[in-house]
């Protein structure tokens, strides 16, 4: 009996492994997306182990060493030091944490909410709930997310958590529209009809029959959006509505450093480059995932 069971599970896993190999082959055909993956993994690694690998972990907080203030990039301080003598590289490493938390946090709220509303609106077409959801979505999409997030942040206390809430509030509607479009075409497929005729519950049809067929584009959008959300998060902290000093945030560092341009250019340029690299990494990764999940045969 046990041996039969292992045989079965083996087959199940073999099929999964085969699928993974295929996916990786598709993904890795594009060298740029592999490059994107490497960037993203590196950023996540740095964020996780910032206190181990940063040259001056104590510089991440309120630290003053006026003797070393304003050092240009070079010996000891790879990216130079800021006006208080803190190592820019260490502060960038620590600010990756906030950036990643920002991205994951926003998507963790906006995606489930947005997708579920979109599935409901798409599946129950012709009922009252569809225009109710979709017209609300239209209102949200009419406002630029940054403006909306700024408006919401302005009434909340400036913390990382609140800026996450603000961006989520501005972001869910994009997922609703995406999943609405897919759900309204999938609902006409014969396999949905078949599930209905069998008598499956609505929740089953939404989550087990329709949702899995929407996941590809949703994952792609999520990866691409990670970059965008981090960018918006940086914009919020640039105007002082994100993580508060002395904790490092990429946007705050750029904002502070901008005052010292041009003679202490490294204060603003390196954090700005860091933002660019994160966004670039997620965008390249997103492109790769899109190619990987597309149904087009290899």
């Amino acid at each position: 009996m046990i041996s039969i069971k292992t045989k079965k599970t083996n087959k199940k896993w073999a099929a999964k492994l085969d699928g993974l190999c295929r996916s990786w082959y598709k993904f890795s055909r594009n060298k740029l997306s592999v490059f994107g993956l490497i960037i993203v993994l590196t950023v996540i690694f740095i964020a996780l182990f910032a206190d181990k690998i940063a040259p001056f972990p104590e510089h991440a907080g309120a630290f003053v060493d006026l003797g070393n203030a304003g050092r240009p990039p070079g010996e000891g301080y790879l990216f130079g030091t800021d006006q208080y003598g803190r190592d820019i590289l260490s502060r960038i490493f620590f600010s990756f944490r906030g950036a990643i938390i920002m991205g994951i946090g926003v998507l963790a709220v906006a995606v489930p909410v947005g997708v579920f509303l979109g599935l409901i609106a798409g599946y129950f077409q012709g009922s009252l709930i569809e225009p109710l959801i979709m017209r609300t979505v239209d209102i949200f999409l009419a406002l630029p997310p940054l403006v909306l997030a700024l408006a919401v942040s302005a009434v909340l206390r400036p913390t990382l958590f609140n800026s996450m809430m603000a961006v989520s509030f501005a972001w869910w509607a994009w997922y609703t529209r995406l999943s609405y479009g897919m759900a309204s075409s999938i609902r006409n497929e014969f396999y949905i009809q078949s599930a209905e005729l069998i008598g499956a519950s609505r929740l089953h049809i939404l989550l087990r029959e329709i949702l899995p067929n929407c996941l590809g584009p949703i994952f792609t959008k999520m990866t691409l959006d990670m970059g965008w959300v981090i960018l918006i998060g940086a914009s919020l902290s640039f105007v002082g509505m994100g993580e508060q000093p002395p904790k490092p945030a990429l946007g705050t560092m750029v904002a502070d450093g901008a005052k010292y341009i041009p003679h202490m250019w490294w204060l603003a340029v390196f954090p700005a480059l860091a933002i660019m690299i994160i966004v670039l990494g997620f965008n390249l990764l997103g492109d790769g995932i899109r190619d990987m999940l597309s149904t087009e045969e290899v």
């Binding site: 014969f190 396999y191 009809q193 078949s194 599930a195 005729l197 069998i198 087990r208 067929n213 996941l215």
Partner: peptide, 20 residues
Amino acid sequence: IKKNIQIVFQDPGTSLNPQR
């Protein structure tokens, strides 16, 4: 009633959920 009347559709390419 649903249990007692079932259907087989024309095109099996679209009547089976590709993700299941």
